[in-house]
């Protein structure tokens, strides 16, 4: 069953075409890597899925299992966050906001949920630490925990390993794979890191304003070696 389907999506900024006729379906439990050069529309696609950008035409439909805003998102870090005085717990708890409606305070369950996600990512000991004092890898874990508070079904990651050292990068990929394998979360990741994309993902989407390729990693290897005998591989 599709958890997300993108139909004839067109996005424009002013008069610049950012995305052209993008079509794809994401199945429940898929691990999708979106790759492409700078300016190929990767981030725009991500923002469209999140509803941060309004498409010119076409649509993005969420599966019935995703209720409103039931999406976990790991954005790229901003300058604001680098010296932000907030405890890890406060940051993680803020992920529960989408379920809260108009209640002015967090409920007990929501607080428990934040704690559980801290445990899930093995950062419970950092609970009262200040976010700005953490290492890059720890900060990413905190933000993933926050994303898990927002959704247990789908996680979107925008270039999550930028600026991390190789060891931390590997740990982060392991966490994402674990969430996909053990907790059956669907993953959508925008990345520059082609190799680990091919290693971990179950689907590859290559963009250059339009969809250049959509299929499994094996098919992608075949595609880049320019053997086009798998007919269903090429879309767009």
């Amino acid at each position: 069953m599709a958890i997300l389907s993108c139909k004839n999506l067109n996005v424009q900024y002013d008069n610049q075409v950012a995305l052209k006729d993008v079509n794809f379906d994401l199945e429940d439990g898929d691990y999708l890597c979106i790759i492409g050069d700078n300016g190929s529309g990767k981030s725009t696609l991500m923002k469209s899925i999140l509803g941060l950008v309004t498409p010119k035409s076409g649509s993005i439909q969420y599966g019935a299992q995703l209720k409103n805003h039931d999406i976990g998102y790991l954005p790229q870090q901003t300058i604001v966050q680098r010296d932000f005085p907030a405890s890890v717990y406060e940051v993680v708890l803020s992920g529960c906001l989408n379920k809260r409606g108009w209640r002015p305070f967090y409920s007990k369950e929501e607080k428990q949920r934040a704690i559980n996600n801290l445990k899930k990512l093995k950062i419970e000991h950092l609970k009262n630490k200040c976010y700005r004092d953490l290492s890059g890898g720890q900060q990413q874990r905190v933000l993933i925990a926050r994303a898990l508070c927002a959704s247990e079904k789908i996680l979107l990651l925008d270039e999550p390993v930028t600026g991390l050292d190789p060891v931390t990068t590997k740990h982060l990929y392991d966490i994402i794979e674990e969430l996909n394998r053990d907790y059956k979360m669907s993953i959508i990741m925008v990345t520059h890191d082609m190799n680990s994309g091919l290693e971990h993902a179950t689907k590859i989407l290559r963009l250059n304003k339009e969809v250049v390729f959509y299929g499994t990693p094996d098919e992608y290897l075949c595609f880049t070696n320019s053997c086009h005998h798998i007919g269903a591989v090429k879309h767009g």
């Binding site: 999140l50 509803g51 941060l52 805003h69 999406i71 998102y73 954005p75 901003t78 604001v80 966050q81 932000f84 907030a86 406060e90 940051v91 803020s94 992920g95 906001l97 989408n98 809260r100 002015p104 305070f105 967090y106 933000l143 926050r146 994303a147 927002a150 979107l156």
Partner: peptide, 16 residues
Amino acid sequence: DRIFATTFDESFAKAT
């Protein structure tokens, strides 16, 4: 709580 969320991370807050 919403002021915290929008101050800390505008795009995440918007997405949720």
